[in-house]
Amino acid sequence: MSLHLDAGRRAGPASPPPPDATARTLAQRRWSSRRGRFDHKVSPYIYVAPFFVLFGVFGLYPLIYTAWVSLRNWDYIGGDKGFVGLKNYTELLKDDWFTGAVFNTVGMFIVATVPQLLLALMLAYALNRQMRARTLFRMGILVPNITSVVAVGIIFAQLFSRDWGLINWVLGLVGVDPIDWRASQWASWTAISTMVDWRWTGYNSLIFLAAMQAIPKDLYESAAIDGASTWRQFWKITVPMLRPTIIFAVIISTIGGLQLFTEPLVFIGGNGAILGGSERQAQTVTMYLVETAFRRFDFGYGAAIAWLLFLLILIISIFNVWLVRRLAAYGSNKAGV
């Protein structure tokens, strides 16, 4: 606003011929010092404003609006039927489709994330050593991450096809009968987790690698002089020193893993894909959310699912941080670092 006022002022005296050049210069100088202070104080806020404006519109507003909707009985065909308090939430906690979806989501998160982070750690450790064409390998492990998730989903859905899949063909070579990867819970979880790991292991490796490079070399040297094996160095120096990075990776994986959506959807496929299979064996919370809110158009119930998912992520993230802190503290104590 002040800019506008000022622009008006400037435009005013500009049209008639200037009566006195010196007076104008003085006035300008006074102005410019006031402007300087204004600039100094206000500019930073204006510079950061775009983020907060965008966050407010696309983040905060939907969040609050969702909370409001979740307290109402609102379905698309019948319209908004008014305030119902926490009824949607209490019903949700009794809904076995919801608890099943939570179980699937957490289950797939564990099946996918634990091996993923361990593997990423090993990979990063390997890539941190002297080797030929190191940059090529370092860049190479990120390639799965930059491919489109739907493309990955389609390819993996074919790899895990019952009749024509590569995986079943390989298993057939060693005498294992074809597995219907979509039929049972453990099979679909395994297939979907493989997809997730394919995409995210490389990404996490690079993050670990960056952190590893910041660990002072002399720690390893002195450990080596004391006779510590490579394996021991890895667990007693590398892992404890990576603690903040591991916490970061775990939180990012938690947020991503608990919002798992595209992979199971593409993997199951067909008309009822959003149900996550014949027994809902691979339906995640986000899929159930979309099913209720955007297939059956029960907006209030769907909004309640969204908020419970948010709380779930919060709780699991906090638990993870606590767990990682404990583990890493334990490691560093034993190593005496």
């Binding site: 800019l3 500019s43 204006i46 775009p50 404006v53 519109v57």
Partner: peptide
């Protein structure tokens, strides 16, 4: 000039708002 910078900042945020609208 300060004017240009302030203008840039305002233009940026206005741009963002306009993009939304």
């Amino acid at each position: 000039s300060w004017r240009r910078r302030a203008f840039a900042a305002v233009a940026l945020s206005m741009g963002a708002v306009l993009a939304i609208a």
